[in-house]
Amino acid sequence: MRPLFAKPISAKQATLLVLLLLIAVAPAFFPSNFYYRVGTLIFINGLAVTGLVVLIGYAGQISLGHAGFAGLGAYACALGPVHLGLPPALSLVLGAVLSGLLAWLVGRPILRLKGHYLAIATLGFGVLVSMVLANEAWLTGGPDGMAVADLGLRGLLKSAGIKVGNAELWYWLAGLILLAGAWLALNLKDSPSGRALRSLHDSEVAARTVGVDVARYKLSAFVISAVYASVSGSLLALTNRFVTPDIANFLHSIELVTMTVLGGAGTVIGAATGALLLTALPQVLTALQEYEHIVFGLIMMLVMIFLPDGLLPSLHRLLRRRVS
């Protein structure tokens, strides 16, 4: 007997479908325009976190310095139009290329390190970037930050006869870019490169014996995740129209890693859930604002102790046990 569907829906298609539906349907429930802004921030964080899924979830390498790449992307968008006369969109691309190159240079020596040593080395990299951004005031405006040019998309749409509010436009734009980022990461997972990354995560020695050039694949995961973080930082700067060195802050790196492991680092949908929860909570519960970092730390500890695989995989296992 032939099955009803020629092919069952793959995990990749299911993830993209769920993301698409959530992005498309959520605005129907927004009580005010403010929620477009919250949604935009969720998607922007979700993009950086999707990059970390490739690094942490697939390849099993840690980084506590990816906010450094977000800072690079953000300042590329701030400086590109002022100093090089580049349009903001092109500055975003330039920032991504620079971040990728820097990740390649930095990653070559530090990815030889493992575990805690790698965590400390990446942390050092992030701190370095944020210090440069804060101290080189002649270029970056120092701790006071600097203004960022308008992306110009809204004006473009207006001249084409499409009128859309700024908050709404950013919601759809960031949602679309997140979908594209998720699509790329999902393509990678079940591809030859994805298998190589996941295999070195589980056993480096076995990965080597089947021919995987472990150093090369770790480096490509590092570069890919750096580009994601850079684009995420660029988008944040462009939507805020302002940037301060805080974007490259150590705490921002920790937030991104917490989001990644909370939902479950191994899957894009899990990481997106982490970004959703940890971005939305402080926005909605403004009372928490002062204790935000304490809450983040607490969540990270609880997840590590009770749900080491992350929220979604643990829930999934629980449900499966209930059913059977």
Binding site: L184, A185, N187, L188, S191, P192, S193, G194, R195, A196, S199, V210, G211, V212, Y217, S220, I224
Partner: peptide, 12 residues
């Protein structure tokens, strides 16, 4: 891996 490896960009 050795038979199936290719460009990571193509895989993305």
């Amino acid at each position: 891996h050795l038979a199936e490896r290719g460009s990571t960009l193509a895989d993305l």
